[in-house]
Design a protein around this nucleic acid. Structure first.
Lengths: 202, 202
DNA sequence: CGGGTGCTAGTACGGCTGTACCAGAACCTA
DNA sequence: TAGGTTCTGGTACAGCCGTACTAGCACCCG
């Protein structure tokens, strides 16, 4: 078997090139040729690894989510209380160079999935994944005794889920109006609401 | 001046056809030809009213937001307390036939705006508009004495803003997992959190 | 009842798209 | 060193894209 090329590395190169194309020119500009040029190879070489455009887009979106999971899951497993939960959820927000870029790319994928059946599955799986993160966050805060006992856990998780997605959307769609500090503060404030208010009853 | 044609009506026809194309085939399929076919006219006729594609897309997005405003603003002006605020905010959620369609189209526009400078202005304006709605909502609930007095109004508005956007995104991106009733319940629960908890302190 | 203007349809151009094919380079095995 | 497999580049084909141009229809005004 000659000409051993590291297929995984090659695919990673291509997928990362696709991400850059989306971030710089939008998903509408994604084509075999633009991605191949960005990856520094010929369109034919690209098609050798991803025979069809569906496979290319699907793989790129799945990989994006997988990379984000790699960042978040350790934080989730390390979380023991509200503070840990907040750190974990903050990792999902479009803050920092990498985070903002990733979330913008994800938003483009998610919107594209509305009309592109091939991506819909991953889109819904990812949504379920975020919801599961919110569920776990609530469980952790229940275990630590910080969540207000009068709240329905399922409802609390739903609100965390929606809030994080909303902050993500805002941070991407109108970054000028929502600074990273602002995003983090809104997240913290919401967790404050869900946890027992620190002030005493009058 | 012969052949009087109602320009506004013609433009409305075209814009509505564009919306249908986005909803049925995605924004990637928007072209002079597809929209003209959907509107039942020739591409040339379409280009007579919208000389360039930028103008077409920009106008269609602006009109979409304007229509939504027409639905929401009366509800805002009528709102006097938490109940009225909830009704107003619920109108923004992707519930019902029309609401869901509108929000899916808006999401497609917003995502497209990330890489299409012509739409970015409207996108940011719309974001500011939603934030203003949240600000007004908080003012109303302060005036009615329902908002928890220990909350910072600005922070409360930011959380409402983010939550509504998040619910909108979820309702579009994964409708199977977020029923209209679920969306409304999460909104209600969040307003509950922001208002004085009904239960007495122990 | 012509004249002229608002409006429409058809056609054409260069450029980009996804996909397919084929010859040839590169490299491990024997 | 020769062979055979993996991989790559170039080229080609329909088809759609935005835009531009030109001829002609339909109607109101005088």
């Amino acid at each position: 078997m000659p000409r051993l090329a590291d297929h995984d590395a090659r695919r990673a190169t291509i997928v990362e090139a696709l991400w850059r194309v989306i971030r710089q020119a939008g998903i509408a500009d994604v084509s075999v040729r633009t991605v191949a040029a960005e990856a520094g190879m010929s369109p034919t070489a690209l098609r050798y690894y991803f025979p069809t455009q569906d496979a290319l887009l699907t793989n790129a979106m799945r990989e994006l989510v997988a990379v984000a999971s790699l960042r978040v899951v350790p934080l989730l497993e390390a979380a023991r209380d509200r503070r840990g939960v907040e750190t974990m959820l903050a990792e999902l927000l479009p803050v920092g160079e990498q985070g903002r870029a990733d979330q913008q790319i994800y938003l483009a994928f998610a919107a594209h999935a509305l009309a592109f059946p091939g991506l819909r599955g991953i889109s819904e799986e990812t949504g379920q994944g975020i919801r599961r993160l919110a569920d776990r966050a609530v469980e952790i805060m229940i275990a630590s005794g910080e969540l207000r006992p009068d709240l329905d856990p399922e409802r609390a998780a739903a609100s965390i889920d929606a809030l994080v997605q909303g902050l993500t959307f805002q941070g991407c769609a109108r970054p000028a109006l929502t600074s990273p500090a602002e995003l983090r503060r809104t997240l913290a404030e919401h967790l404050d609401l869900l946890c027992r208010p620190p002030r005493e009853c009058e």
